[in-house]
């Protein structure tokens, strides 16, 4: 077309201008929202909702209400493994080949005196089996059958000293930068009937990709709270001095410490 319709070009021009203006407005908005997302002040304002959630949720749930449990038919054919790759140290790999006979769970911190348990000792304690749904923060869910020792049992044996408020789980897996995974829960969640340290998944020894030899199940919270490859348990009064100071590997990276939502 040698002679474009002037009406058409004008319309095109107007449309183009509008599109341009919309794009500028949008990218401006995006920049504002992105910088707000990274601002410390905004972070703490938005974070206030987390504290409200924690309080309201606990008020609604009480301390001993149970998460929904499922039947054998509901169990997912494969239980997805997420997060860091399993530990790659020689010690772990060799021990894994020998069903973790050399592994010990260390319990320390604000307790009468530190104690150590072997996997066999943990398995000899009263166990709880539960078929529960695991919800990942990303959005997927899987149902698995877990067997393990109730954390309350270990709390009782450890005899925490006054002032102990949280339990920190130190893990053997690490990210690419060598930072070790860790998580923490408060003592109220710790003594919940369904909070267990699991050594079995779907009637078999806990597979390496799901956190062998021992992982936490804290059924009122999202998947990232369920620390895998546990090495040690530490009773503490505050979380500020541990790791990045937010109480969890993922909380240090901006996720909520309270993962009940």
């Amino acid at each position: 077309m040698s002679n474009p319709d002037p009406e058409l070009t004008r319309r095109k021009l107007m449309l183009g201008t509008l599109q341009g203006a919309a794009a500028v407005a949008l990218s401006g908005c995006e920049k504002v929202l992105d910088s707000l997302s990274q601002s410390e002040t905004m972070h703490s304002i938005l974070e206030s909702a987390e504290h409200v959630n924690r309080r309201v949720h606990r008020l609604l749930s009480g301390r001993y209400k149970l998460a929904q449990e499922f039947t054998e038919q509901d169990i997912s054919p494969t239980f997805r493994a997420n997060g860091n790759p399993p530990p790659v140290t020689n010690e772990y790999v060799e021990d894994a080949a020998k069903q973790f006979i050399n592994w010990r769970l260390e319990i320390s911190g604000l307790v009468q005196q530190p104690i150590f348990f072997s996997l066999a000792e943990l398995k000899s304690m009263p166990a709880r089996t539960q078929i529960t749904r695991h919800d990942c923060v990303e959005g997927w869910s899987a149902i698995g059958k877990w067997k393990g020792v109730r954390l309350e049992e270990l709390v009782d044996r450890a005899r925490p000293r006054p002032g102990a408020k949280y339990i920190v789980f130190h893990c053997m897996d690490a990210d690419g930068d060598g930072k070790h995974y860790y998580e923490s829960i408060d003592l109220i969640d710790a003594i919940h009937p369904q909070t267990i340290l699991a050594y079995e998944l779907n009637d078999r020894a806990l597979p390496v990709e799901n956190g062998a030899p021992l992982r936490l199940r804290v059924e009122n919270q999202l998947g990232y709270k369920h620390a895998k490859y546990i090495r040690a348990i530490e009773f503490v009064a505050a979380l500020e001095t541990i790791g990045g100071g937010k109480g969890s590997y993922w909380a240090d990276q901006g996720y909520e410490w309270y993962a009940g939502i």
Binding site: S61, E219, N220, L222, A259
Partner: peptide, 10 residues
């Protein structure tokens, strides 16, 4: 979708 509210209200 909240696991804790799943505890409160199965």
């Amino acid at each position: 979708m909240s696991p804790q509210l799943n505890v409160a209200f199965n």
